[in-house]
């Protein structure tokens, strides 16, 4: 790793000052940042360690009031949270399925949202890809088996790596983003930036801004949620396809569904097609299967990832079933 200075602010207010130095980047759990530095992708002169700020680590509230989560909360803490065991369980499931037990003990929710692409061309310093300022997306005509099947015609075909974002989008979560001067709130689904909008960033954070809180809205009546991912390995792995669903379930009748897909596009995305196929339906295995098919109608797979379309159909079907307490294999 290159040498860097290390700022250790104790309070959120001190973070902004430490970030004023040019070439500084924020480190929370450090899993992504240290990887980027070791791979020679990032060369910060200063790391601003926000992991020592206790006021960024909390899970407050309940299903009635809504839940507020500090960005410094670890994935392991989310996975075992009582508050997230009911209507919000998709978030606990997503956090608990990310990476390995060791990584989940270090990695934070804020870091999970802000991590940089995991595309193997991006992570290899020998490939000067579009996202790094080059002119070629090496995955388009290269090894693209894990890449995007949506929004993949704009010069970068990576899939966004944040698993927690998929669950947060399904739950309708919001973020508070703060800088030294101001703060703003934004839906998680609006936080991410597609290559069509801007090739060189994955989210809307400006230099000097950090996520200071994640908000889950109060759970609607009879709200259920579920997260599921398909991997190549049984133990830890990146997803081939991941889906989070939330809906109000009156008996088996579904209302106000939200369906979010990860490992599908350069941003964690909502599937409006899936949602309209599910809304006001009595959920059955057949309905769940048709939701999967609808969600994939507009997919535009690349040369090596047509298989993902079929996997997504199955994963969406299963996730909708499990959210509704139906055995998809019955």
């Amino acid at each position: 790793m290159n040498s860097f200075e290390y700022a250790m602010p104790k309070r959120t207010a001190d973070v902004f000052r430490a970030l004023e130095s040019s070439d500084s980047i924020i480190k929370a759990g450090g899993i992504d940042v240290l990887d980027l530095i070791k791979e020679g992708i990032a060369h910060p002169q200063r790391l601003v360690n926000i992991n020592s700020i206790d006021e960024l680590k909390y899970i407050e509230g309940n299903q009635t009031t809504g839940v507020k989560i500090g960005p410094g909360t670890t994935l392991a803490e989310l996975a075992s949270s009582e508050v997230l065991s009911g209507s919000y369980r998709a978030l606990a499931q997503a956090a608990g399925s990310t990476a390995t037990p060791q990584i989940r003990n270090s990695a934070t929710l804020g870091g999970s949202l802000c991590q940089r692409p995991r595309c193997w061309y991006f992570r290899n310093k020998d490939y000067h890809c579009t996202r790094k300022g080059g002119f070629t997306c090496f995955a388009v005509n290269g090894e693209n088996e894990n890449h995007a099947i949506f929004e993949n015609d704009f010069g970068c075909v990576m899939v966004h790596p944040s698993t927690t974002a998929v669950a947060l989008i399904a739950l309708g979560a919001k973020l508070t983003i703060a800088s030294a001067k101001s703060s703003r709130e934004i839906l998680v689904e609006d936080f991410f930036v597609t290559p069509r909008e801007n090739m060189h960033r994955e989210n809307i954070l400006e230099q000097g801004e950090i996520i200071t809180a994640i908000h889950l809205p109060p759970a609607a009546k009879n709200m259920v949620s579920y997260y599921y991912k398909q991997k190549a390995k049984q133990s830890f792995d990146w997803p081939i396809a991941e889906v989070a669903v939330s809906m109000q379930l009156d008996g088996k009748k579904c209302q106000n569904p939200r369906v979010a897909l990860g490992a599908a596009a350069p941003v964690p995305m909502r599937s409006k097609e899936a949602e309209s196929a599910l809304n006001n339906q009595e959920v059955t295995i057949d309905i769940a299967a048709s939701v999967g098919k609808e969600a994939m109608k507009k997919a535009t797979p690349l040369s090596q990832n047509k298989y993902k379309v079929h996997i997504f159909q199955a994963v969406i079907k299963r996730t909708v079933c499990w959210a509704s307490d139906i055995d998809p294999f019955a």
Binding site: G30, L34, Q102, N105
Partner: peptide
């Protein structure tokens, strides 16, 4: 691996298992 993917470097810090290759000593 030196990237937190293999777990060979696992140690326990304050009662939690972590990858020591992805943990800064100073922390």
């Amino acid at each position: 691996c030196d990237r937190g993917a293999c777990g060979a470097c696992t140690v326990i810090v304050d009662g939690k298992s972590v990858c020591s290759c992805m943990t800064l000593a100073i922390d």
